[in-house]
């Protein structure tokens, strides 16, 4: 089986956001970069499939700046076979459609049976790229998958919807987006890290696509007015209840 996992280089989740001088992007000063956590679930799941089905190949694809080769190497160290970096210095200025079109082009060329994505990147949070790519390819998509099974030309996913789990089956080729809980991603072993150095990473320019949306401002959320400590211990409960009912009108 041929597999593609798409990953994004993103700021670590404990990053404190500062706005750059351009007013529309993140100030990268001092930011640590990681593979987006949901994408790690996608990579891990793909590695497990590859380990189970002999003769499989897993290609990791990323659209990002040249530095994103590091995140691809991390995935190769986990166990992926080779990488493709669609290089774009201005990758973070792209919107969902211009990322999805570039990735869909690369996936079409690789021709996998299954393309896996994280449910969303933890920086732009759109949760749009996976299903957008699926629609461009004309493939079915299973989003927010917590459990994945492969059958004869089929993929079956358990996906969380409001108040229930839905089980959906799709014919391959298909797109899957990974939700937390799908698996526990492995840490690269020393042996894996050494092996990754010899694995090929194809670096090529990402197709220049015009975004369909434009960011006019990146800003910090409004500061919440300072709250008050109502009191200590259970003696404070009646006053809390009064405030919630009369002042906040929240109960």
């Amino acid at each position: 089986m041929k597999l593609v996992a798409c990953v994004k280089r993103v700021p670590a989740t404990d990053t404190r956001v500062r706005v750059a001088a351009d007013g529309v992007s993140l100030d990268p000063q001092g930011v640590e970069w990681i593979v987006s956590p949901y994408d790690e679930f996608a990579v891990e799941e793909a590695i497990r499939i590859r380990e189970k089905l002999a003769g499989s190949e897993l290609v990791v694809v990323s659209l990002g700046p040249a530095e994103a080769a590091k995140e691809i190497r991390t995935c190769l160290a986990m166990g992926a076979d080779r990488g493709v970096l669609l290089e774009d210095r201005a990758a973070y200025a792209r919107d969902v459609s211009s990322v999805a079109e570039a990735l869909a082009g690369a996936i079409r060329e690789i021709g996998p049976d299954l393309a896996l994505f994280g449910r969303q990147s933890v920086d732009s949070d759109s949760a749009g790229v996976g299903p957008f790519v699926a629609a461009l390819l004309g493939w079915p998509v299973l989003t927010f998958v917590r459990k994945l099974e492969l059958g004869d030309g089929l993929v079956r996913g358990h996906r969380e919807i409001e108040g229930a789990t839905e089980v959906v089956e799709a014919r391959l080729p298909a797109v899957v987006t990974a939700e937390k809980g799908l698996n526990e991603p492995r840490y690269p072993s020393l042996k894996g890290i050494m092996a990754a150095k010899k694995k090929p990473v194809d670096i090529r320019p990402a197709p220049p696509l015009a975004p369909r949306t434009r960011v006019v401002a990146l800003e910090l959320p409004p500061v919440r007015p300072p709250g008050k400590v109502v009191g200590k211990g259970k003696e404070a409960v009646p006053e809390l209840l009064r405030l919630l009912r009369e002042e906040a009108k929240a109960l």
Partner: peptide, 9 residues
Amino acid sequence: KARVRVRSA
């Protein structure tokens, strides 16, 4: 942690 204002291109 932040928000963007977005318009159509």
